[in-house]
Design a protein around this nucleic acid. Structure first.
Lengths: 212, 212
DNA sequence: TTTTATTTTCTATAGTTGTAGAGAATAAGC
DNA sequence: GCTTATTCTCTACAACTATAGAAAATAAAA
């Protein structure tokens, strides 16, 4: 069954009783609850019952909004990427070159509790993607997008002279992206409470390597 | 109950009938079967039944060798680290400085099908470690060990003049380690059959950044 | 062959999971 | 109050899980 689209609350059908719940909004609420469970208890504890309870509902209440658990999880994971990309767009808007690159990385790196939680969500996604070609492709497409952005900033930085190394941008972009991904792992496996890994210093170090 | 140690096959106890099975050897066989299942079907399919079947046994046959599933998995994951570290020791023995560092990275990077499979095993481990402090600590200790090795090689490379960047070794080591971890993710999520990510070129690129 | 220690199979159990769907509860319009 | 569309709860169920342990099978020594 197709899901209803935003705004349906005010677009009545042939019936006389309007919808009470905005389905899109509800889906986001459920996704929020899912994130909280995964961040707090881990993906193993993210059962339909647990998620429903966290969202304030009983067992079967998720069905009309997500017909299966996989639908819910795929939507939830996709939303992490969207949110991150929105934040990236915000912080890099108006910037270019090395400044944009720095802002990009600072936004992706797990530097505070919130982004460490996002790391705790993306790692289970990676694990599921290993045996789920659809999820793996979502990941590859997102990473391709990030690689393009990084290369764009690198090219700008070369124009302005901030990047002058003989190492080519394709290689540099790959190195930087892998660093960003690796940092997610280190951060997610930090002991409770600890948040500092010296990642900001690592970033500055890498960026300063780019100037010959 | 404590497990029996290697060599018991020939060291008879008070009974008159010798053990048929070398328990340590059997444990390694079971770990091998576990790896194969995880690499081929994913951690979700790594049930006790599936592992037993893969190893050529029936359901309950694992019990005497691993009392619980967690025991088996922890042992299996630990064995990945041990094997990798043994390989590292082999390929870096006799080397120092940049050559040792290169050999280290080449051994850890998922450059062929076998090491891509290892990436498909370590990612589920990371995921489990997120909510299992014991496993997280195993990871941190191993990474600390790798960081020390990287720093040692960097220091040697500085002595010989191969590394001359102003960026300090702690930062460089962190960058490199994160690159290595991130590469595992990219490799594990590659489409079936594909193995090339340009990681060797990335490595050479990074290493050449270290010489001013 | 008989004995005995060891190994393996097989069945049973208690728990958890995603999913389905009937019915109750709810809210809006008459 | 009554009607009706929608939403939610609750129970049920089939599948699958790790684990336990009795019984059978096995292999070596006597």
């Amino acid at each position: 069954m197709a899901h209803k689209s935003l705004g349906e609350k005010y677009l009545l059908g042939s019936g006389r009783v309007p919808k009470i719940v905005d389905h899109d909004e509800r889906r986001l609420e459920l996704v929020d609850a899912t994130w909280r469970i995964i961040a707090r208890l881990g993906i193993e504890s993210a059962t339909m019952r647990e998620i429903a309870t966290e969202a304030g509902f009983a067992n079967g209440a998720l069905k009309p909004y997500f017909p299966t658990k996989d639908t819910l999880l795929t939507f939830a994971f996709g939303h992490v990427f969207n949110r991150t990309n929105e934040r990236i767009a915000e912080v890099t808007s108006g910037l270019s070159g090395l400044a944009a690159l720095r802002a990009f990385c600072v936004e992706v790196l797990p530097l505070d509790e919130e982004r460490i939680n996002e790391a705790r969500i993306v790692i289970p996604f990676w694990q599921k993607a290993i045996n789920d070609p659809g999820k793996a492709q979502i990941h590859r497409e997102s990473m391709q997008q990030w690689l393009d952005a990084i290369r764009r900033h690198l090219a700008e930085a070369r124009d302005s002279g901030d990047v002058s190394t003989a190492v080519d941008d394709d290689s540099l972009a790959g190195q930087l992206l892998n660093m960003l991904l690796g940092a997610q792992i280190a951060a997610a496996l930090l002991p409770e409470g600890q948040t500092d890994l010296g990642l900001d210093r690592q970033l500055e170090g890498f960026l300063s390597l780019l100037t010959r």
